[in-house]
Amino acid sequence: MTATVDVRRRRDIAAGYLFLSPWLLGFVLLTAGPMIASLYLSFTSYDLFSSPSWIGTQNYTRLFADERFRHSVTVTLGYVVLATPLKLAAALAVALLLNGRRRGQGFYRSAFYAPSLIGASVSIAIVWKALFGAEGAVDEIGRFFGWNSGGWVGNPSLSMPMLVLLSVWQFGAPMVIFLAGLKQVPAELYEAALVDGAGRIRRFLSITLPMISPVVFFNLILETIHAFQIFNSAYVISGGNGSPAGSTLFYTLYLYMRGFADLRMGYASAMAWVLALAVAALTLIMFRTSRSWVHYGGDPS
């Protein structure tokens, strides 16, 4: 008896792994393998032309002495701190508006989601560049109101806000998640609050926000990681070199320049690992702090 069960069980496990195999293969060949290779390369000097030569931690020590590296970190952190909260706020605001029962709601939901489908593409980056360039639509409107910006693209203090706007405009994905979260809030809570005479703002702060805090947390983590990885739009809009005056020299852009323009693959790999570790550390910190502000439904409180 037990023998047949064992055989069946082993067969099940084999079948399980068989079904998993495409994913496992993909993981090993396309993710884990390259990651290990890049970890190795980060301790070497490698220019694609000659085989990598081991130089220990030199790439890492150089990195922290590199002024442009530090600059790219500042630029990227500035972007993350600005773009992430604004995007989440926009997503939550629109989700609240769409939460009621209104006619044509499905249409609005799709319409607001559309930008996130296309926003990361190269074509939108080009459109954005045309919109915000000198004599672009935004510049024209600004001039009408007497503000001559001379185009946002060429202005080092406006190029970053322009990219933040592009990111905020793609609020669709977190919005859909927020919407799902809002639908889960029990209506009785609002009814009870109404009976107690709570106003709109009071209800939002005391019921909605705490009830959807797990969703806020989820979106926060996802969007923060996402913001660190900004590349496409910055590459296209800056012409690939972080211009004007280095104001859009994002971490990933600098990494790409070092790797593929200067052919310093070891250095670029070291940069990639520093970024991965920094994002992991940040995520860990967010998980730690989440205990104090994220409330899960089943919590005994």
Binding site: A134, G150, G151, V153, G154, P156, G239, S243, P244, A245
Partner: peptide, 11 residues
Amino acid sequence: LPAKDVTALKP
């Protein structure tokens, strides 16, 4: 010619 005008016209 100011740098921002150069950038705006690029390439």
